[in-house]
Amino acid sequence: MNINATLIGQAIAFAVFVWFCMKYVWPPLLDAIEARQKKIADGLTQAERAGKNLELAQAKATEQLKEAKVQAAEIIDQANKRRTQIVEEAKNEGEVERDKIIAQGEAEVEAERNRAREELRQQVATLAIAGAEKIIKRSIDKEANSDIIDKLVAEL
């Protein structure tokens, strides 16, 4: 094994390869690696932030749900109250109406009765007068005694 010019050739090839590697191979590869590292780091940060946001949103949603439940309960409560009130009102109204109708009916019945009684009385009076007339026809003037008849009628 003797030392010869192969050594120089190898050294030249070595220099050229190192130069090429330094110029065209190393920088783009390392740039890509570093850019990706940065991207991944950014992604992780963002993921962490998103996780925090999610947690926050969940807490908020829970709170809102609770609020909504309270509100719903309130509304239901109010509705119940209102229903009771309406039913009560309707009942009252119905009762008033019923009383009114009953009173009206009674009044009508009373009026009818009065009218019938009046009619009856009048007829009885007329009958009485007719009877009396017939009895007294011969002697007594009808006109002169009519006030007594009227008084009798009123007393009936």
């Binding site: 094994m1 030392i3 050594l7 050739g9 190898q10 050294a11 070595f14």
Partner: peptide, 15 residues
């Protein structure tokens, strides 16, 4: 095998 050639290895180490 180039690295079994002393010239090759010495060429690199001398560089």
């Amino acid at each position: 095998v180039p690295t079994t050639d002393l010239n090759v290895t010495l060429g690199m180490s001398l560089s």
